[in-house]
């Protein structure tokens, strides 16, 4: 069984995202340990893609830096194997369909299962196309994560019904990246999901401050924060580990008791 459920057992879950290989894979590995210590419940490891169409400028730039630094899917898998020797924290891989497909979908997901990665998130694979990946995921005990957007409306029901692990609720329109204003509309989507599924719901996209995290956590079971952390990695480079650690700690504190 995947360990996703465990991630939602310590109060509201805090789920950070980092781009693997930005600034390098040694730092990425250190970041995982540091964030686990700081209270992260599930960590999303981003495998960079050359043309990430669902990302805003921060993660686009990080992806490019990582790829220019020579990161590949195989090198990231080696790093995850090292992590798994030291840590049992729930892990998810977030990347794009082509990264999985070109590696060979079966081989990619089988490797994930063997390494003990718990979930796969592909933002460019909607409900209509998911079977190509989700059927393989079932075979290797990896949860294929479904996303719900503010535009999903009547689609929420069917997406939620077949979801696995947790439901990823996209907070607002647009791509990833920090926003000053996130509406509360997502609350009604979460309610709709809860009517159809017992899975936890985590809200992501645009959350960067403890206040925003608190607000989103009050509407759901956890929050996902990507760009705000990736931005720190970009700013501080190899010095980013303690800074990210403090940030994660502050965010987890803010939502723990919501």
């Amino acid at each position: 069984m995947s360990k996703i459920k465990k991630a939602f057992e310590n109060g509201k879950a805090f789920i950070p995202f980092i781009t693997c290989g930005d600034p390098n894979l040694d730092i990425t590995e250190e970041l995982v340990y540091a964030m686990e210590e700081a209270g992260a419940d599930l960590i999303e490891l981003g495998i960079p893609f050359s043309d990430p169409t669902a990302e805003g400028s921060v993660i686009q730039a990080a992806s490019l830096r990582a790829l220019n630094g020579g990161v590949t899917t195989d090198k990231i898998f080696e790093m995850i194997k090292r992590i798994r020797k030291n840590s049992g924290i729930p892990l998810a891989i977030m990347t794009y369909a082509n990264v999985v497909f070109s590696y060979n979908t079966e081989k990619f997901i089988k490797t994930m299962g063997e390494m003990g990665v718990d979930a796969l998130i592909l933002p460019d694979v909607p409900f209509e196309e998911k079977e190509e990946f989700s059927l393989v995921c079932e075979k290797y005990d990896v949860d294929f994560i479904s996303l719900i957007a503010p535009t999903s409306n009547e689609r929420v029901e069917k997406v939620a019904r077949e979801a696995k692990g947790f439901v990823y609720c996209v907070s607002s329109l647009g791509v990833t990246g920090t926003r000053t204003d996130i509406s509360n509309d997502i609350g009604s989507s979460v309610e709709m999901i809860r009517n159809k599924s017992n899975l936890p719901c985590a809200i992501g996209f645009g959350i960067s401050t403890p206040e925003q995290a608190k607000k989103m956590a009050s509407l759901s079971d956890g929050v996902i924060v990507g760009s705000a952390i990736v931005k720190l990695c970009g700013e501080y480079g190899e010095e980013c580990v303690p800074i990210v650690k403090d940030f994660v700690m502050e965010m987890k504190e803010a939502i723990r008791t919501v």
Binding site: P126, E129, T151, V159, V170
Partner: peptide
Amino acid sequence: KKGRFGVHGGQYIPETLMNA
């Protein structure tokens, strides 16, 4: 078949755009 041409085609886009 969902806009398929043999194995090609499909709708690999974010959920946000699906209803559009």
